[in-house]
Nucleic acid binder design. Structure first.
Lengths: 249, 249
DNA sequence: ACACTTAGTGTAATAAAAACACTTTAGATA
DNA sequence: TATCTAAAGTGTTTTTATTACACTAAGTGT
């Protein structure tokens, strides 16, 4: 009996994606309503939302699995993806409701389920969600209440990872269209970091980032002074970025 | 045939620990020589080194598994541990040599092996390695050549994670005895970041860190001016640390 | 007493951060 | 076509952080 504890098992592995989007106002998350999926079970209604996840295939790398899951949901390839943590608590998905769901998915409800967490950044305006309005939609991050499973924990962990990443690398662009304004970029920083920034100081700071290229092109069709458009040059960024070894503490 | 690719399997999960230590000169890694372990196989000599790893038990959380693995090797508890990445390439451990090793370990050589990578920081002077000189020892990180499996890749990834962490949080102390000198701390930063730092500027910088508490106590028995000793106050750090939300970009 | 070794200290110049308010330019509207 | 509205764009001053740089102090060993 005692050695049951030291048994070795092969758990079930899946990938869960926290998909961040930005709509010029809010940081949003793509959530899936389980209700529709389980309609066939009739009397069981799982009336709550989950992140997007799926198991990995036998010969599939984790990054490939994450890209596949994103592609299936959004039709997009080459999305910015970052693995941030593993969720493997032995009691994960062992609540009665979760077990029902596992059975419903054709999975062994007694199997241990380990999830590798990824976060994705996508430019919302590139996406037309095939499933939108059915069971998939965007939700502002600060309006999200209780999610299924341990997905609130995964979401919080993803947000923290995103914040840290944003403070160390220029990834805000990934949430914006190819051409963007400095106000949009500032708002990205503000919604991710949950703070407000001074416009002049922000612009002074980004003007030092040589990989931010101003275009001879302006916003069109806005009822106010149109803003200049910028693009992010990955090439210049890669060329000029300071290696971690150059940092001084 | 085609759908074999989309088969779902339950891979084998293990935890690999990159154990960092510091001896006032070098950043060291604890490595295990597989040779001894496999002596019983007689004709097969695996003459190379690996990180410390093991499978997880059925009801064991990943962090607990990592702590257990460290405890078994060093006899230490409450070690600083940080999960940094998952290594799951489908062809991992599929070289002939690796398969032999898996068979030798009583594992299915066809099973997919996924490793969750942790790095540990330990104060070397606290450790008396039971296995030291037998098949476990410290190696300066810049002298490490070819390791078994994909452990060079895991090591590089761990080092990068450690560097990033060090630039964002005060964790250098974890590699030092409770009471340490500023020169020791500076050297920790230097060996981890692979750079050299100006002594006066370093001291100016750390003097701003309120959680670094000077003691009324000096080094003893050194053949030069003895240095003042400091301790790290986690309490003050937690109280005064700026939340990610306070950062300005 | 002298040699050796590492600890410990200050200043000036440059760069970055923070705080702060008004003018410009387009579309919308009357 | 004059006026309104809304966001874009811009500069200065103060404070704080970074960088570069060289000598004296305090112990042990001989």
């Amino acid at each position: 009996m005692a050695n049951i504890v030291t048994n070795i098992i092969n758990p079930h592995i899946s990938v869960d994606c926290v998909i961040f989007g930005f709509d010029d106002d809010n940081l949003n998350i793509l959530l899936v309503d389980r209700t529709l999926k389980e309609k066939k079970t009739d009397h069981i209604i799982f009336n709550d939302f989950t992140l997007t996840g799926n198991h990995i295939y036998e010969k599939e790398d984790l990054n490939d699995a994450a890209h596949r899951i994103l592609y299936d949901l959004t039709g997009l390839k080459n999305i910015y993806l970052e693995q941030f943590s593993v969720f493997a608590h032995p009691e994960r998905l062992s609540k009665p409701n979760d077990k029902l769901w596992l059975i419903n998915q054709g999975k062994d409800p007694e199997s241990r389920i380990i999830s590798v967490g990824y976060f994705a950044l996508i430019a919302t305006n590139n996406v037309t969600l095939e499933w939108k309005g059915r069971n998939v939609d965007w939700f502002p991050i600060n309006k999200i209440k209780e999610l299924a499973f341990d997905h609130n924990q995964i979401l919080n962990s993803a947000l923290k990872a995103l914040q840290t990443k944003l403070l160390n690398e220029p990834i805000g662009f990934e949430l914006l269209p190819e051409k963007f304004t400095l106000s949009q970029l500032q708002k990205v920083y503000e919604v991710i970091l949950g703070t407000s920034l001074d416009k002049r100081n922000f612009r002074k700071k980004v003007s030092r980032m040589k990989y931010l290229i101003p275009l001879n092109e302006k916003q069109k069709g806005v009822a106010h002074k149109p803003a200049q458009l910028f693009v992010f040059s990955r090439e210049i960024y890669e060329k000029t970025k300071r290696n971690v070894f150059d940092f001084s503490i």
